[in-house]
Amino acid sequence: MAGRRRPAWAVILITGLLLWLATVAVTFLTANANLVPTLVLLGSFLVPVTFVAWAYSHRDEVITVEALFRLFVVGGILGVLGASILESYLLHPSAWMFVGVGLIEEGVKLVALWLLTRHLAGKSVRSGVVLGATVGFGFAAFESAGYALNALITVDGLSLRALVETEILRGLLAPFGHGLWTAILGGLLFATASRAGRFRLTGALVLGYLGVSLLHALWDSMHGIAVYLVYALTSTARQQALFAQGWIPRPTDEQVHLFTLFSIGGTIVITLIALLWLRRVWRSGRHVS
C-alpha cells in the first residue's frame, strides 16, 4: 500500500532546506560570488514560501494560487517600497522610533492587502487571515533579502558567514513576525466586509491596527527594553557613574543572563499574545455568515 503523500509545504521546506545547505557548502568551498544571489534568495524566501503553502492548505475555495502569488510578490514589494519611503522621510532616531516603524509597516501592508483584494468575491474572515499572512510573508521575504545583503557587505569585504547567520536568524523568526501580524489584520479587515461585501473602516479595524503596530514596536525594541530593565534593576553605583560620563561599563555575568532572559522572554510573550489573538480572529470566522 502506497505511503501517505507529504503535504506540499513539507516538500517545499525539505527540498528548499537541502538546496540552501548545498548552496552554502559550495559557496564556502569555491568562494564563487556568482552563487551569492542564489544563497540570498533561497535563504530569504524559503520559510515565507513554506508558510504561505501551509496557509494555502487552510484556505477557502475562493482563493487561487494566482491570487496568493500576486499578494506575495506585489503586496510584499508594495509594502517594502511604501515603508522605505515613509520611514526615510518621517522617522528620525528617538525613543519612539520603533513605534513609528510599527505604525508605518503595518499600515502599508494593510493598504496593500486592501487594494489587491478589494474586488475579491466571498470576503470571509479566514480568507482575510490567509491573504494577510501572504502579504506579510512577502514583505518579510523581500526585507530579509535586504538584511542578508547588508550583512554580506562589511568593511573587511564580503562576509559569507555573516550572511548565513543573518538568514538563519531571520528564517527562525519569520513565522512570528510580519506574517503573523498581517494575518491578524487581514482577518479584521475581511470581517468588515463579511456582510456588506466591501471593506469598511471600522473602530474595530483601527484598534486592531494600533494593537498590531504596538506588538510590532515592542518586538523591534525588545533589545533596548531588556537593556533598560537590566540597568534599572541591577546597575551599581559605579556603573551609573560611568553611564553618566558617557562610558558603557562591562556587564556582570548576572546582568548578561538577565538581559538574555528579558529579551528572549519578552519576545516569547509578544508572540504568544499575537498567536492567541490570531486564534480568536480565526475562530470568529465560524460565526460569521
Rank of each mutant, 00 (worst) to 15 (best):
Y228T: 15
N34C: 02
W247R: 08
G136P: 00
A33P: 02
V288N: 05
W20E: 01
L275D: 00
L116M: 06
E167T: 06
L233I: 07
G102E: 00
D220F: 04
F98S: 11
G138N: 01
G224A: 00
G82W: 03
T202V: 12
A244D: 12
H92M: 02
A204W: 14
M222G: 10
V36P: 02
P249E: 01
S221M: 11
L29Y: 04
L188A: 06
Y147H: 01
A55F: 13
T15C: 12
L258G: 08
Y56F: 13
P7A: 13
L13N: 00
E254T: 15
L173I: 12
V49Y: 04
F51W: 11
W114A: 05
I273E: 08
A226H: 06
A53T: 06
G102T: 03
R70G: 13
P251C: 04
G132W: 07
G82A: 11
E143G: 01
V26N: 06
L18P: 06
L29C: 00
A241F: 07
A196E: 09
L218H: 06
F142P: 11
R195H: 15
T30E: 04
I264L: 14
G186S: 10
G157N: 03
S194K: 08
S44K: 08
G246E: 05
A25P: 03
A8C: 04
S94I: 09
G203D: 02
L242C: 04
A237T: 12
V206I: 15
G16A: 06
L261K: 05
V52N: 00
I85E: 00
L115N: 10
A31C: 06
L261I: 12
R59K: 14
G132Y: 00
A193P: 08
A121D: 13
Y228L: 14
R279C: 08
P7G: 09
A237F: 03
I248A: 11
L41R: 09
L201C: 03
V74E: 10
P48S: 12
A22Y: 05
Y56T: 09
W247S: 14
R170S: 10
L39I: 11
A162T: 03
F51N: 02
F262E: 09
A140H: 09
Q240V: 04
Y56I: 01
